[in-house]
């Protein structure tokens, strides 16, 4: 599904990080595609670092990809202490862009380079800044 910024009845949706996370809140992983050179960006950019265009189209991604590398974090920051140990990794999406995120595995499942993953979404955190709903990855 492809839509332009002006297709949205809420007005123009700028290719900002905050808007990217707002889409996550709707269960959609969205990329910004440069109108001029066609490069795809996740996270979106407001200025294409390749051709300097500032015109982008939002494009919904399948959220499917393969795990490139990962780590199991045992010493966690405060906000994630309750989840430790947890796995983070970098995922190569089938659209050819990389995205970092947590990899949430089921009981008995182990992280493996090359494993197939698919994106999922959490509800937004309560309080503090920012309050962006996080995406995460789980086995496909």
């Amino acid at each position: 599904m492809e839509e332009t910024a002006s297709d949205r009845n809420s007005g123009e949706v700028y290719p900002t990080i905050e808007n990217f996370y707002k889409f996550c809140g709707q269960g959609r992983l969205m990329a910004a595609k440069c109108d001029r050179c066609g490069r795809l960006f996740v996270p979106p950019r407001v200025l294409c670092p390749d051709c300097y265009s500032s015109n982008f189209k939002w494009l919904q991604l399948s959220g499917r990809g393969k795990l490139q590398t990962y780590s199991t974090i045992h010493v966690a920051p405060k906000a994630f202490a309750a989840q430790a140990p947890y796995v983070v990794g970098i995922v190569r999406l089938e659209d050819g862009v990389n995205l970092p995120g947590r990899v949430v595995l089921g009981k008995g499942q182990e992280a493996k380079i090359g494993m197939d993953l698919v994106v999922d979404f959490e509800s937004p955190p309560v309080g503090g800044w920012p309050r962006w709903p996080r995406y995460l990855f789980k086995p496909a």
């Binding site: 990080i17 590398t69 780590s71 966690a76 920051p77 983070v88 970092p100 380079i113």
Partner: peptide, 24 residues
């Protein structure tokens, strides 16, 4: 911050990702 720390990546974890890739 918006894509690494926000998702729970620590600084050691970022180098751990490189270590895993190098070992692989």
């Amino acid at each position: 911050n918006f894509f690494e720390q926000w998702h729970g990546f620590t600084f050691p974890a970022l180098f751990a990702l490189m270590a895993r890739a190098h070992m692989n």
